[in-house]
């Protein structure tokens, strides 16, 4: 099976700061692979089979070359890095467009896996946008993928239980975090990785007009961010249940007017 995995480098939660306007201060923050993308990668490595290949695709600064090379040691066969200032500031639409072009240029792939959402943006839109752009079926929020005949059987948690869905290939599937534990790099993998290079791709190499990339290719703009609960935790506090319940009811009644 020829599998593509879309991964994103996100700021490490332990190192990133948020400024007064609630924006992530990415400069200087340590980067790490988005946690649900690692589940997608392990799923790909488990599914590819002896004759298969796993390609990772990401968009970001050139400094991601080294972390991508580390993925070779874990069994990845090829790594594609879309890197150019023109890609910067992309919303989910512009990101999906860039990924779609890379997929078309380097495919075909039997399966495209993504994490269900990135922990920095938390939109979860790219997998389905990518699937729509490629006109492929899409299952989001999967926790297990099993080959079944000519397609895949996908287990997907929902509020009431789990769904078992069949999807023909090629397809796009996004994985929940912590569903597959990414394997450790092996010694043989580390040795193999030394002879491999990350493929750097610019807009020109992909044949995309810069107008359709990054901020200029985005359909959305973040105008302002604010706290969702500005008055949170300012109400009366009590340890007594008999006093607490009437107090909450009174707050609710007041809010309802």
């Amino acid at each position: 099976m020829n599998v593509l995995v879309c991964v994103k480098a996100v700021p490490s939660t332990g190192s990133v700061q948020v400024d007064g306007a609630f924006r992530l201060q990415r400069d200087g923050a340590k980067l790490e692979w988005n946690v649900s993308d690692l589940s997608a990668l392990e799923a790909a490595l488990s599914l590819k089979g002896p004759e298969g290949r796993v390609t990772v695709l990401t968009m970001g600064p050139k400094k991601l070359e080294e972390p991508l090379r580390e993925l070779f040691a874990r069994g990845v066969d090829e790594a594609l890095l879309l890197t150019d200032p023109a890609f910067a500031g992309a919303d989910t639409f512009a990101t999906a467009n860039a990924l779609e072009t890379a997929v078309k240029n380097h495919g075909p792939f039997d399966l495209i896996l993504c994490g269900r959402r990135a922990i920095d943006g938390e939109t979860g839109q790219v997998p389905s946008m990518l699937a729509a752009a490629l006109a492929l079926p899409c299952i989001t929020g999967a926790e297990r993928i099993t080959p079944e005949g000519s397609g895949l059987l996908v287990r997907r948690p929902v509020e009431e239980g789990v769904q078992m869905l069949f999807v023909p290939m090629p397809a796009v599937i996004s994985l929940c975090e912590y569903t597959y534990s990414l394997r450790l790099p092996g010694i043989m993998g580390l040795r193999r990785a030394k002879g491999k290079a990350v493929t750097l791709l610019s807009p020109a190499e992909l044949g995309i007009d810069k107008e359709n990339l990054g901020l200029s290719g985005s359909l959305t703009r973040v105008i302002q961010m604010d706290s969702k609960f500005p008055g949170l935790r300012k109400g009366p506090k009590t340890d007594s249940l008999s006093q607490g319940i009437p107090a909450i009811l009174s707050v609710i009644k007041e809010a309802k007017g």
Partner: peptide, 9 residues
């Protein structure tokens, strides 16, 4: 001898 690598896992 060689750290936490796949061979150990």
């Amino acid at each position: 001898l060689m750290g936490y690598v796949d061979e150990v896992a």
